[in-house]
């Protein structure tokens, strides 16, 4: 059989897509589908087949006060980390984009937390937060202020985790802002200067709007990151004390691998997926309209 040119191109196209499609299907789409299916069944005991229970698993989950506490923790965590790390990233990017001595060194210093593996970073912060020998308490002690049990006190622990996350993420987001800032032509600043536009006014009227695509991208990434936290909780608090720092994905992990309750884990995962999808769609539809892409 001879293939005409058009068919041939289609075949090539399909072949080129195949590796990515295979990998995505195996590691993203199939697991997602199985998770959704798992969340609708109760596993059978002693080899009995799993029983379809519809949304019952979800009802059980929504009646679970721990789930709500974890969800609330995660909301606080997101509100604590996302705006702070974005603002900090933008501030740092503006700072290191300007003329300053040792610019390369400062840029590298800001980016270092991103290069560190999460586990290593968390271990470093363990030393900062340690109640007796920790850096923070030693500093407070030298000032004569009583120390705080940073990770052990339920009212402080979540904030401590938030601070560490901001430290870890801001440098990463800074890189995106820095790249975007460097793509803004310097003549725009000069044209504004000729009209006596103040720095503040220039930032809000030109720089910030031109950075909107980056902000949107960073915002979505920050949101995803805020529900992806497992590793540093594992090192720092293990979700404690009394679930004060337990976040959604860590709760999924606990359910799946500590309590061996795969069904609940699957149900929470589906809830996370839905919430993320809804928020991301909202962000794109609302902010996209007001974003200028070059």
């Amino acid at each position: 059989m001879t293939l005409n040119a058009h068919r041939k191109m289609q075949l090539y196209g399909a072949l080129l897509l195949l590796p990515a499609a295979l990998l995505l299907t195996t590691f993203a789409y199939l697991p997602t589908v199985t998770t959704v299916i798992n969340s609708l069944f109760l596993p059978g005991f002693r080899g009995e087949p799993a029983e379809f229970v519809g949304v019952e698993n979800y009802q059980v989950l929504f009646d679970d006060p721990t789930f709500w506490q974890v969800a609330r923790n995660n909301l606080i965590y997101a509100l604590g980390t996302i705006p702070t790390s974005i603002a900090l990233a933008l501030g740092m990017a503006l700072f290191v984009n300007g003329k300053l001595p040792g610019r390369g060194f400062v840029r590298m210093a800001y980016f270092t937390p991103t290069i560190l593996p999460m586990i290593a970073a968390a271990n470093i912060w363990m030393f900062f937060y340690a109640p007796q020998i920790g850096l923070f308490n030693s500093l407070l002690d030298s000032l004569g202020i009583p120390g705080v049990n940073w990770l052990g006190d339920p009212s402080v622990a979540l904030s401590s985790v938030i601070v560490m996350s901001v430290w870890k993420e801001a440098g990463f987001f800074m890189i995106f802002y820095l790249a975007a800032l460097q793509s803004i032509p310097p003549e725009l600043k000069e044209a504004a200067d000729l009209e006596g536009t103040s720095r503040w006014s220039f930032f809000w009227r030109v720089t910030f709007p031109l950075l909107m695509p980056t902000t949107l991208f960073v915002l979505i990434n920050a949101l995803i990151n805020s529900v992806r936290v497992v590793d540093h909780l594992f090192i720092l608090t293990k979700g404690g004390p009394n679930n004060a720092t337990n976040l959604l994905l860590y709760y999924v992990y606990e359910n799946a691998f500590s309590f061996f309750d795969r069904t609940t884990a699957a149900t929470i995962t589906v809830v996370i997926l839905i919430v993320l999808a809804v928020v991301a769609t909202l962000k794109f539809t609302i902010l996209d309209r007001r974003t200028h892409y070059q």
């Binding site: 000069e190 009209e195 030109v206």
Partner: peptide, 13 residues
């Protein structure tokens, strides 16, 4: 004074 730039320096947004 005012200035016209080679690249025009218009604000794209």
């Amino acid at each position: 004074l005012s200035m016209v730039f080679q690249s025009y320096a218009l604000f794209p947004h």
